[in-house]
Amino acid sequence: MTGLLDYQPGSSPLHKAHPLVKLLLAVAICVCGFLADSIYINIIILLLIVLCGARCGLARQIRATLKGMGALCAILFILQLPFIGSGRVWIDLPLGMTVTDQGVRFCAQLCLRLIGATLPLVMLFAVTRLSDLTNTLVAQLGIPYRYAFVLTTAVRFIPVLLGEMREVIEAQTARGVELDVGVLRKIRLIPPLCAPLLVSCVQRMENNALAAELRGFYLRKRGSGYRRYPLSGVDYAWIVSCVILLTISIIL
């Protein structure tokens, strides 16, 4: 299963950076996108992410994210646009709705911000082993291990859940259930789809918790991790650039 949140091994500068630095970088970029007033900053940030990601061998993830988010943003754009009345009116629509220059700018920026917030996170998981991230969160930030484990489990269960969902859908489809039908019928189909999924997920989670306990989950301490994560010069450079990025976006 090569899902969107899977780690992709590599040796790019992003891969080599410290896990916490990568997390900082991703969060900083998201924040910048929302802080920036000028749409040009958003465009520049997005271009930088895409360029940087492509150089680090993440073209596939970027394409998939852009495709998914593109569709979502298109819908948002169309739904949002007619309700913004301020600015110079370009087109008059019935029911007092309008398309204005400010409306287009606002909606476009909203979409850019959304994509600009999603991409760094997708890339973060693609270049960081989940265990590295949780290990550093526990060892260096002192976050209790159980919370870090919840993060790991959540990410690990996404593909498992999707797989289960697919199998349940297949099982019901094979019985002659038609899923591509009207909304009303679809609501009627919720129990046949959800009941089996719920049962199997609860079973799995229970087994998972049990297995973790049998392997010393409760004995784990802050310093238990095998791997050590020293910060390198390059990492400090990344941190400095994060600060610069944030400053610029606040000023502009």
């Binding site: 899977d6 780690y7 082993r129 989940l130 265990s131 484990f149 790991t152 990410v155 690990r156 498992v160 079973q203 799995r204 989670m205 087994n207 998972n208 297995a211 973790a212 392997r215 010393g216 989950f217 004995l219 784990r220 301490k221 238990s224 991790g225 095998y226």
Partner: peptide
């Protein structure tokens, strides 16, 4: 070791999985 191998893993990579219990038991 259980039958449902999928749900006994605690990590996402082979090496981490083997390290997991070693780390826990110090």
């Amino acid at each position: 070791v259980f039958q449902d191998v999928e749900s006994q893993f605690a990590t996402t990579m082979v090496e981490d999985e083997i390290l997991y219990a070693l780390e826990n038991f110090s």
